[in-house]
Design a protein around this nucleic acid. Sequence first.
DNA 1: CGACTTCTTGAGGAACGTCAACCGCAGTGG
DNA 2: CCACTGCGGTTGACGTTCCTCAAGAAGTCG
Lengths: 236, 236
Amino acid sequence: MGEVLGRYYSRDMALPDNHPWNTLPVSDVASLLERATPMVLARGHRIKSELGIVISGAVAVECELFDGRRVLCTLFHQGNLVDLRRTKRNRQGQLIALKRSIFIALDERQFAVCATDHATAFFVQLRELTARMRDHAADLVSKTPLEKLASVLFEFTRWPGAVLNDNEPNMIRMPICRSDIADYIGVKPETVSRAIRQLERECIIEILDKNRIVLCDIPSMRRIANGGRPRRSTRR
Amino acid sequence: MGEVLGRYYSRDMALPDNHPWNTLPVSDVASLLERATPMVLARGHRIKSELGIVISGAVAVECELFDGRRVLCTLFHQGNLVDLRRTKRNRQGQLIALKRSIFIALDERQFAVCATDHATAFFVQLRELTARMRDHAADLVSKTPLEKLASVLFEFTRWPGAVLNDNEPNMIRMPICRSDIADYIGVKPETVSRAIRQLERECIIEILDKNRIVLCDIPSMRRIANGGRPRRSTRR
DNA sequence: CGACTTCTTGAGGAACGTCAACCGCAGTGG
DNA sequence: CCACTGCGGTTGACGTTCCTCAAGAAGTCG
């Protein structure tokens, strides 16, 4: 824990091939990577840096509550910009890798230079992040476990590399394990399991194996994710 | 609904006197306000603009779920920068005033100019916002209603103008009504009421009237807010 | 093969939502 | 002035739901 598996230096080290990095001119990419200190992390490794870019894998902000409950506030995937600094208040939570991941840590100065050089890309990343966090807050506030799960499955479809096969665009890979999903949507792993089975029973998804599922009935799932499956008598 | 009470043009219109706006040089403030179209809103008024700055009052992103449940994803107070744009996906939720508020709407072009001129202030605002949203997500994920309420009370203490009286620094004003608190922390108004009474019974807060409370035992409240009051047997 | 982790399934209970009723207050109109 | 209405807030009784606990299944690694 807390250790870095190794450094990932490569001549053809590249930024993730997704928005907004793939819109940067080549020279800018090079200047960004010059300042990089990439590291390879395994599941459970903590990242001391508050600043950086996720190159691959899955990383989260993990908080531990007073009594030991574990919470994942935010998920980061390939291409996400991470900035946990805050002016007032002390830092809450820390970065943790949820699976084998590559992360470019940046120090304050490097970050400032990059943010100036690539202000637009950085702004776009921050705006996307806040939009994702708003959606996640809406998920957490009052949805039932089934609704939360459907919503998070849609979130996963938007992860780069989620679609495994162009012939089967609705087959996706689950990027993180069940207990991490549980800590992210605020239910217990047992409840995640039951919710997945429920969707399967209703033929809305098909479970190929633990890591791969097919979305069979996207309209129904969208309706559930938007709040179509309230508690029995929540209709006041 | 959806109407604007009036425009708020004033020679001495000023940006909120809090971070980061109060650190801007006078000339920058003037240039920001030149581009402004301030509006006065009453409770329930919707704001069509996706971009702007909250001058006073309380504004939120409101989402309505499929079955009518109402959710407040994010709260904005005096001085907060609002940017709801998103590249992919359609817009979720809309801005709504929770009480009498003043809001400066900015259009895309105005916003771009401001963001360039005041990049640092804008970055600071965005970073503060993401930090607040992370904390809120941590609150929503797995805390009990009592813990959520304690946490949101601390959030309120950080609102500009929350402290009513320098002699009594622990007396704060509740900036939004009970049912909005409920929609923000994902419980029912009845539960908010019960949680407040609970804190009062334990002499952790004192209720002066509906809008004013005193935090009597901050350490206990902090412990509760950090997860010190789990469900009876959540300790596995 | 055994030790371990992750996931799954089932049974039972605490907790929060639901429903209903009530209070206090502000606004409104006669 | 009072009656009426509506809204926000509060309290109590009851029931669904999701968490807890336990045990087993399936996969992984030594």
